[in-house]
Write a protein that binds this DNA or RNA. Structure first.
Length: 644
RNA sequence: GCCGUUGUAGCUCAGUGGUAGAGCACUUCCUUGGUAAGGAAGGGGUCACGAGUUCAACUCUCGUCAAUGGCUCCA
């Protein structure tokens, strides 16, 4: 007999070689129906793998991330199996599960494939599911494994196997399809009830742009048809919220091929939105002791040689511009920090001046590969809500914490309730990618970790994700429909102060080196607004809306009354537009709704007589009539609540 | 930058080897209407750009540019 410890702490006795599936069955039939895999002693196992000695066991279902993982990983095999039957002789790269769904990288050899073929593949997959093919785990030696794939002439799998250690290698076989795989997998394909191939893309073998490009097929599967329908609905919703689409419809920004690719142009409504966000942040920063500065858009090459950016990025930047007479070279400003270092060093600094917090909405220009450009989220010219804090070592942690507070306050105000935090550290095995001494890196990394602990943030640590000059703390938010976006960033930097030879006189009358914090709560205005558009679906909070109230006179006779009302609201700082077209009320309402104007007020005979307004809120029905003052108070209260 | 897809009116899209269409938007006129589209008329396109094939190209071929889905990259 062996003892199995379950997650609730209970211990049950079973015959040796019992499987997780049998344990599930012994608990309840329903559980056995839903269980997908199991965690045996912290390792994910197949359900039918015998357990030989005492163990802890956690059964995985669709509700567990790891359960989904197994489900999708098995689905990847299912897809590969179907594709191999349809296109014999093709070769397979890798086929992992991803956050939602899975993909498989395939070398289609001489076949051409397009999304028109998806139906055919889906049908074949469904056919294999209907066969209830068992999936078997087979243990082989490395030699056997190599022999199998050499016979198949699959150089990708051969390369993968060659990279593995000597010893047992596992294959998984379902029907005729055999794949190199660590597993685990579902016992058979039958739980896969809904299948959808999503897209087709090129992907370099092993992510290396010098190697062959394979065809990647993205797909998703579910244990219930309903879940697939929900997911497809979510994708549709995401399309509706796409900031590129809404940006056009709401006239926020545009792109012009003549101006240049990746260079957004802000239209009046978008510019107003951006300005409001900037003013909001400026006000917060002022309270936190920041001072605004302004720097030019270009900087002498020398500046970037000092900062180290020239050596690191000079070749990948826009080419320098030069003066006609002297031939001096200038770069378009790719970041603000070197300029801010020059501001620091424009006069001697005392410890009494620190912390010095310099903020700038600095527009920067970076050469991004053409294939990378995407709406407002990846552009060649953008404005950072940048600031650099110069402080003493003693002040570092406190300053860092204050920056965290600003970022969290912004998230709260803009209704990003769900966020995660990532600490990005240096890859210690790849030190040549970074500049600066080991000692400084250690200090900087410790400062971040300490601040995160002090603010009780639940952060994940990523090795090798640091900037080349220092470690950083990144904030990711989840938007209203569950997608993750990277926004704010805070970075500790010991290197630039050294490179620019920044100093302050301490209380000991000695020279000391300040530490620098780079930080941008929004990241960039462009990117942040893109995320805000998708988060809100274009329904901006009242305080940010371009027009807060649309006044809709029922007919021309009431335009004058509408103008009186507009004047009174404008006197209170409320942004108003009057729709004085000779259209019917239904049409005016429809247009105001589509423009996502937060409030409409409809005025006609009744309102004019009683000196009232009929209010309608965006996305809602008629809210009835009220005095203008009462309405203005609703607006003002709503704004006050949003900004509190 | 690489691979795939796409490019027709301001927007969303149909269409054909014989020099182009719809809806919305726009202009004008009629209508003065009470909670998501009132009616009529009109203007608007070198069918992304450049070459080639053809009697003839918006349509077929090649190239360029751009958009787009990914990959690589991201101070």
């Amino acid at each position: 007999m062996i003892h199995i410890t379950l997650p609730d702490g209970s211990i049950k006795s079973y015959e040796q070689n019992i499987t997780s599936y049998e344990v599930a069955l012994s608990i309840s039939e329903g559980l056995a129906r839903n269980v997908l895999a199991a965690i045996v002693n912290d390792e994910v196992w197949d359900l039918h793998r015998p357990i030989q000695s005492n163990a802890t066991l956690r059964l995985l279902t669709w509700d567990d991330e790891q359960g989904k993982d197994v489900f999708w990983h098995t689905s990847a095999h299912l897809m590969a199996s179907a594709i191999e039957m349809l296109y014999p002789g093709i070769k397979f790269g890798i086929g992992p599960s991803i956050e939602v769904g899975f993909y498989y990288d395939i070398d289609f050899m001489d076949y051409t494939i397009s999304s028109d073929d998806f139906k055919k593949i889906e049908d074949k997959m469904a056919e294999l599911v209907a066969n209830k093919e068992k999936i078997n785990r087979i243990e082989v030696t490395k030699e056997e494994a190599l022999k199998y794939f050499k016979k198949k002439n699959d150089e990708y799998k051969i390369e993968l196997i060659e990279g593995l250690e000597e010893g047992t290698i596992t294959f998984y076989k379902s029907g005729e399809f055999v794949d190199l795989c660590r597993g685990p997998h579902l016992p058979d394909m039958s739980p896969i009830k809904a299948i959808k191939l999503l897209s087709l893309a090129g992907a370099y073998w092993r992510g290396d742009e010098k190697r062959k490009q394979l065809t990647r097929i993205y797909a998703v599967t579910f244990p219930k048809k309903k879940l697939l329908d929900e997911y497809l609905l979510l994708l549709e919703e995401a399309k509706k919220r796409d900031h590129r689409k809404l940006g056009k419809e709401l006239e926020l920004f545009t792109f012009s091929q003549t101006v240049g690719v990746g260079l957004p142009i802000w239209l009046p409504k978008g510019a107003a939105l951006r300005e409001r966000l900037e003013n909001f942040l400026k006000k917060v920063q002022k309270e936190y002791g920041y001072q605004q500065v302004i720097c030019p858009h270009i900087g002498n090459v020398e500046l970037y040689k000092i900062s180290g950016h020239y050596q690191k990025y000079g070749q990948d930047s826009f080419r320098p511009i030069s003066t006609p007479q002297e031939g001096e070279e200038f770069f378009l400003k790719p970041m603000n920090c070197p300029h801010h270092c020059e501001i620091y060093s424009c006069k001697p600094r005392s410890y009494k001046d620190l912390p010095l917090r310099l903020a700038e909405f600095g527009t920067v220009y970076r050469y991004e590969q053409s294939g990378e450009l995407h709406g407002l989220t990846r552009v060649r010219g953008f404005t950072q809500d940048d600031a650099h804090i110069f402080c003493t070592p003693d002040q570092l942690e406190d300053e860092f914490c204050k920056v965290i507070d600003i970022i969290l306050y912004i998230f709260k105000t803009l209704d990003f309730k769900d966020y995660t935090v990532q600490i990005s550290l240096r890859d210690p095995d790849n030190k040549e990618k970074y500049i600066g001494s080991d000692e400084n890196w250690k200090k900087a990394e410790k400062a971040i970790i300490d601040a995160v602990q002090k603010r009780n943030l639940n952060a994940v640590i990523e090795i090798g994700e640091a900037a080349f000059y220092g470690p950083k703390l990144d904030f990711m938010v989840r938007d209203a429909i569950g997608r993750k976006w990277q926004l704010g960033t805070i970075q500790v930097d010991y290197n630039l102060p050294e490179r620019f030879d920044l100093e302050y006189i301490g209380s000991d009358n000695q020279k000391h080196r300040p530490i620098m914090i780079h930080r941008a709560p929004f990241g960039s205005m462009e990117r942040f607004i893109a995320v805000l558009i998708e988060h809100t679906g274009g329904n901006f909070p009242l305080w940010l809306a371009f027009e807060q109230v649309a006044i809709l006179p029922i007919s021309d006779k009431y335009i004058e009354y509408a103008q009186q009302i507009a004047q009174q609201l404008e006197n209170q700082g409320i942004r108003v537009t009057i729709d004085d077209r000779s259209e019917k009320t239904g049409k005016k309402i429809r247009d105001a709704e589509m423009q996502k104007i937060p409030y409409m007020i409809i005025v006609g005979e009744k309102e004019m007589e009683n000196n009232t307004v009929a209010v309608r809120k965006h996305g809602m029905q008629d809210m009835g009539s009220m005095q203008l003052d009462a309405f203005a108070q609703i607006i003002n209260n709503e704004i006050k609540n949003q900004l509190s």
